[in-house]
């Protein structure tokens, strides 16, 4: 049995399709990522899967249960870490976990053992009796992840697990998530708009844009869609240069403002040729860079836009 099966799932808000007939299946034990810009429909999808929102049409099964017909069975079998914090700041870390364990009906013995276990997993055991309001953002996040795991869920949902955290804390959270996947018998589905996060953590990634899944594969295969190398050229007249660069070796060109993103096979050989062409037609090249494709390039390749353009704006105040 697959932990998550989604069929033609749709959510409409006042005529606007936030999620538009998406299909995917998450395999047991994997980390599955939903990657896309803010407003792409990731969180709406998650909210339907965790029974907080009713789908407009389509169906979804989580841990074998229908999210509309058996919401309580779904809830028993999932753990959730929301985008915004959901801890009681007045309570201690341990009390927050105890509260959760009792809500999920764990008995006393199991409760005590398990609280200790998950606190150790996220390195907060020595902070167990500290009020959560004294925790840093990263510590709160870790505690929430521990709490999500507390009641032995079959599926764990992480909605933007590192939103608003600094880079160093973000990496630490990733380590915890990877460790968790190795040690616990749990399937993880996460949403993110951080490219690196999807790439480092996920076994498979669904790229979602405007309510639709536009690609779904493991990160390596997704990147192969773009090609071997990506050359980025910033120039003063991009339109002019596009016309001139109709070379066989250039698989695809995407223009973002005054920048051209080119998918090529041997970037280091292509760069001098492209610069030469630009000079010949009188286009000024301001900067050049060469890189291996990232999931960002996959998104650009598919949509002609960047994921990042609208991300991160709200990041610092959320957490």
């Amino acid at each position: 049995m697959e932990p998550i099966v989604v069929k033609n799932l749709t959510k409409t808000f006042n005529g606007f399709k936030a999620v538009d007939s998406i299909n995917f299946t998450v395999k047991k034990g994997e980390i599955f990522g939903l990657l896309g810009p803010n407003g792409a429909g990731k969180t709406t999808t998650i909210k339907m899967l965790v029974t907080l929102l009713k789908p407009s049409s389509g169906e979804a099964k989580v841990a074998g249960y229908d999210v509309v017909k058996q919401p309580n069975m779904v809830r028993k079998n999932i753990g959730i870490v929301f985008q915004e914090p959901t801890l009681d700041l007045e309570l201690t870390a341990k009390e927050n976990l105890d509260f959760h364990a009792r809500l999920y009906g764990l008995n006393k013995k199991r409760r005590e053992e398990r609280i200790k276990e998950v606190l150790k997993l996220v390195d907060l055991y020595d902070k167990a009796n500290l009020q959560v309001k004294k925790f840093s953002g990263g510590m709160q996040r870790r505690l929430e992840i521990a709490r999500g795991l507390l009641h032995f869920p079959k599926v764990l949902f992480l909605d933007e697990p590192t939103l608003g955290l600094d880079a160093q804390t973000r990496r630490k959270i990733w380590d915890y998530i990877i460790e968790m996947k190795e040690r616990e018998d749990v399937t993880i589905i996460l949403t993110t708009h951080y490219i690196e996060e999807a790439d480092k953590l996920c076994d498979r990634v669904a790229i979602i844009d405007k309510g639709k899944i536009i690609a779904l594969d493991d990160p390596e295969n997704l990147k192969k869609m773009v090609g071997e190398d990506v050359v980025s050229l910033t120039v003063n007249d991009p339109e002019r240069l596009i016309d001139e660069l109709a070379l066989e070796e250039i698989r695809k060109i995407v223009r973002i403002e005054d920048r051209l993103e080119l998918s090529v096979v041997k970037g280091e050989i292509m760069i001098p040729r492209m610069v030469e062409i630009a000079q010949k037609v009188g286009v000024e090249v301001k900067s050049v860079s060469l890189r291996k494709p990232t999931l960002e390039d996959v998104f650009i390749h598919l949509t002609g836009r960047e994921i990042r353009e609208e991300s991160g704006k709200n990041a610092f105040w959320r957490r």
């Binding site: 907080l52 069975m73 809830r75 959730i80 915004e84 009681d88 959760h100 999920y104």
Partner: peptide, 13 residues
């Protein structure tokens, strides 16, 4: 406002 309600509302009770 502080989000904690959600923790309660998604619990299986």
């Amino acid at each position: 406002q502080f989000g904690f309600l959600r923790e309660i509302m998604v619990a299986p009770i």
